[in-house]
């Protein structure tokens, strides 16, 4: 077994121990790698997620960021709101750039975490080719997609990840097609670790990042990140919106380690007895005037997801 491998395994062990101990938010490290001077919108949940991602990753980490809101929230040169190196790269290129960086660090014998922090557009649309390539090659990195379900940086146009019926500036009558199922695309690459997360559950996110970084190979975390201007809800409702997404089972928290699926805490209950989907839909301006037909389709989709994941967890195919 190579030295690297041993180091990774012992890290994994440490993570497991630490995971047991980190069961409340106060146990999360106090060090900040994302300072309070970001230029994010008030109530931005994706920058909140980034804060926890970096706390979990620690200082020996590089963020690779394609064009997205995160390009802006870092602040304007020469200032920066970040306390780890951030490598900004063209919109389509994050995963490929991370491949090169990860191999460079391997060549140099460095253990530095290479983490892509990309939006949904940069992941499911323009960046999907690079993403697929890196996962197929087995690049050792963590790819995080924070999903605000539209192109936030350019003012909320549709993305492939925008849900059915949602109004964006390029779908003023509501999006006529369904949200692209990114997780099943990634799953088809059989990565050693993939998970979903949500900004309203930072501890869950923290643990998932820790675990992902303890595993060698391409890892993937898909975070639902509610966005007040895009989803059109009051800024102070940002955490509530994430909770609603999970409680209605519109968004399901799970992880899949070496192919084995585990549904996580809050989603277990939600999948058995989901809160009414209306609670989620009605609280967001982007779903204004949603037709009953579209709403039914959305409800069916939630039901299908619950069944598919329940069957998979139970080992029924």
């Amino acid at each position: 077994m190579s030295g690297n491998r041993i180091a990774k395994l012992s890290l994994q062990l440490m993570t497991i121990i630490e995971e047991r101990s980190v069961n409340n938010l106060s146990a999360i490290p106090k060090e900040e790698y994302l300072y309070k001077c970001t230029s994010a919108c008030a109530g931005c949940s994706s920058s909140l997620c980034l804060r926890y991602v970096l706390k979990a990753a620690g200082p020996d980490s590089v963020l690779v960021v394609p064009a997205c809101c995160t390009s802006v929230i870092q602040g304007m040169y020469p200032g920066t709101a970040m306390n780890v190196p951030v490598y900004n790269i063209a919109f389509a290129a994050a995963a490929a750039c991370a491949s090169g960086m990860s191999d460079a660090f391997a060549t140099l014998g460095r253990e530095t975490n290479v983490i892509v922090y990309a939006g949904d557009g940069g992941t499911v649309d323009i960046g999907i080719q690079a993403l697929s390539g890196a996962f197929e090659r087995g690049t050792n990195f963590l790819y995080i997609c924070y999903d605000n379900e539209a192109y936030g940086n350019t003012g909320m146009q549709r993305s492939g990840s925008t849900p059915l019926g949602a109004r964006t500036t390029t779908t003023p009558g509501g999006k006529p097609t369904a949200k692209k199922d990114l997780d099943r695309i990634v799953e088809a690459h059989n990565p050693p670790y993939m998970a979903t997360a949500c900004s309203a559950y930072p501890l869950d996110l923290y643990k998932k990042v820790k675990k992902a970084l303890s595993i060698e190979g391409p890892k993937f975390i898909h975070i639902l990140a509610p966005c007040p201007p895009g989803w059109r809800y009051p800024t102070e409702k940002t955490v509530e919106m994430g909770k609603l997404a999970v409680k209605t089972a519109q968004w399901i928290l799970y992880e899949r380690e070496f192919g084995k699926l585990t549904i996580n805490g809050p989603s277990k209950a939600a999948m058995k007895k989901p809160a009414p989907l209306e609670d989620y839909i009605k609280s967001q301006g982007r779903f204004k005037n949603l037709s009953p037909e579209i709403f039914d389709l959305m409800r069916q989709q939630v039901e299908q997801n619950i069944q598919r994941l329940s069957r998979e967890e139970a080992g029924v195919c």
């Binding site: 919108c41 008030a42 802006v72 304007m76 201007p229």
Partner: peptide
């Protein structure tokens, strides 16, 4: 237009 978000 700068790079600012809402509130700046």
């Amino acid at each position: 237009y700068g790079a600012e978000r809402r509130g700046a």
